[in-house]
Simulated assay, not measured.
Amino acid sequence: MFLNGCEAMLNNIDLNRLRTITAVFNKRSVAAAASELNVTSSAVSQSIRLLEKELKTQLFLRIGKRLEPTPFVTELCLAVNQFLGQLDHVLEGDQIKAISGKVKLGAPSLFGSGALMKQIGRLRKRHPSIQIQAVLGDTKRLLFDLLEGRLDFAFLDSGKYPVSTKDLLLQPVVTEELILCCSKSFYKEHVDSDHSYKHLSGLEHIPYHDSSEAIYKWYMHHFGKAPKLNPYLMVDHPIAILNAICDDLGLGVVPASTVENRKEIVVISTRKRPLVSQIVLAEVKGKVYSRAQRIIVNGLRSALEADWIR
């Protein structure tokens, strides 16, 4: 029924115009869509006008500098996305491997440098012709980049967000354990089996960039209060935190997956259960993915959910 409906629609609509409309829908901008399609902005605007004339309905509303889709064009793009998704199931074996394209995704720095990178590496081996760019950053930046069309999709920490998420689909995909840890020599010299709040909070900590959010979360979870930190060292990459920890520079909070099988690391435990952070997959509602984008987003979602279940 669905395929028949799409066939009837495509018989009456220029496919190039439909492709143009989905690009505008994804980017929310005529100029950005034109750049993606390698055509002029006037050509994109003309396609919108012609398709609106053919369908006898308005497709986009201009709000400030952004184009907001009408309910009709949202449904149209959802249908096109579903149709293309069904076509992907027809492709098998070498045909899937031969698919090429670019995918740009976002993720929190700690999560992105741990479990996510492992799964990206596995997908890369199965789909060598797909180029993946991972942008690691804070939640606010990732949300803005996703809503402005600079990211195809993103993984986010769950919780309260600084901007509205009404245009996003948010799906929990995995949880990660966040641990406080240090090197064996730092533990022996400074911790010495004293895991009390008073003792631990007085030691040197290594925060990520200019934020101690992960450290505060760990202390709030385990002790119900956050320490006053005055770190002498701040780093701008999660791997740098691990390196600093291994070099005996202090305590740091990292995903448990990043220190698996590292015998030089000691995990600080308390009587409380481990601190667990939920990660959600954020997608723009109705976004029409390319084949490469669908392969990567579905592959990562399935792999992360499978690890979560295990």
Rank of each mutant, 00 (worst) to 15 (best):
C181L: 07
L168C: 08
D138I: 10
K184H: 11
S196R: 03
P162T: 06
Y187R: 03
L136M: 15
L170G: 08
A134H: 08
S185C: 09
V174D: 00
S201R: 07
G137H: 06
L200Y: 03
F155D: 00
E176Q: 15
Q171Y: 11
P128W: 04
D145I: 02
I132M: 10
S201A: 15
K125L: 09
L123A: 02
S196W: 05
L180N: 05
T139L: 00
L151D: 02
Y197T: 06
F144L: 15
R122Y: 08
D152K: 09
T165Y: 10
D157N: 15
L200E: 05
S196H: 03
G159K: 07
Q171D: 11
K160L: 13
C181M: 07
E177L: 05
E176H: 11
S196M: 04
D194S: 11
K184T: 12
L200H: 06
L123E: 02
V191I: 14
Q131C: 05
S164A: 12
C182F: 09
L146T: 05
L142E: 00
V191A: 07
E177A: 09
L156G: 00
L169D: 13
K160Q: 15
F186Y: 03
F153E: 00
L180Y: 05
Q133L: 13
E189C: 06
G202W: 02
L123M: 03
F186C: 00
P172G: 03
R141W: 05
L151S: 04
L151G: 03
K160W: 08
S158F: 10
L168R: 05
T175L: 09
R126F: 09
H199W: 12
Q131V: 11
R126M: 10
K125T: 13
D138Y: 06
L200W: 02
F153R: 01
L169E: 13
S185W: 06
R150I: 08
E189V: 04
S164T: 10
E176M: 12
T165R: 09
L178R: 11
Q131G: 04
L146V: 08
R141D: 11
A154V: 05
